[in-house]
């Protein structure tokens, strides 16, 4: 399965520039940290500043390397399934605490089984219920981990 493609050299340039920006970020905020208390002894900002410079230089070198690349191959950035996996993961983690374990994991698993695994409703729903219930019991009862209850958890277990 193939998704969006981009030329290899363009990706290298973009990645290098991103890295340079990360280096610049640490350099900028590192310079704003308090100076060393005594001369000759590095302070809280010294290491981040030095590392920020190294990262920025490496990033620029990678970007320049990308520009000079003769290789015409292209890179697969990913397709529909990656997008689905990523979006559902972001939603599940964002809703994990507010909506509670039961609701977020059950919805996440049902969606995952259907959209990623191509399962039917009839199979996905019971499987999702079974897995999330089983994990809930394993982690809270056996391992003593505190998982967020949320609405459904409060009704069922409290």
């Amino acid at each position: 399965m193939t998704g969006a493609r981009v030329a290899q050299w363009k990706a290298e340039v973009a990645g290098g520039l991103l890295l340079a920006a990360i280096g610049g970020f640490f350099l900028y905020f590192g310079l704003r940290l308090p100076p060393p208390d005594e001369p000759g002894v590095p302070g809280p900002g010294s290491a981040p500043i030095a590392l920020g410079v190294i990262i920025a230089l490496c990033g620029l070198a990678v970007a320049i390397g990308g520009l000079r690349k003769a290789d015409r191959s292209s890179l697969d950035l990913g397709g529909r399934k990656q997008a689905i996996a990523l979006i559902s993961l972001v939603l599940a983690t964002a809703l994990f605490e507010p909506a509670g374990f039961m609701l977020s994991t059950f919805t996440f698993l049902t969606a995952g089984f259907i959209l990623l695994g191509g399962a039917s409703w009839q199979r996905a729903v019971p499987a999702a219920a079974l897995v999330s219930g089983g994990l809930w019991l394993t982690f809270t009862k056996l391992l003593g981990v505190g998982l967020p209850y949320g609405l459904i958890g409060e009704i069922l277990f409290r």
């Binding site: 996440f108 698993l109 995952g112 695994g117 399962a119 499987a127 999330s132």
Partner: peptide, 17 residues
């Protein structure tokens, strides 16, 4: 297709725990 969502979920619980 069954394993991948389950692994993702176990990662979530593991990190949260």
């Amino acid at each position: 297709g069954f394993l991948a969502p389950t692994i993702l979920l176990v990662c979530i619980i593991g990190v949260y725990s």
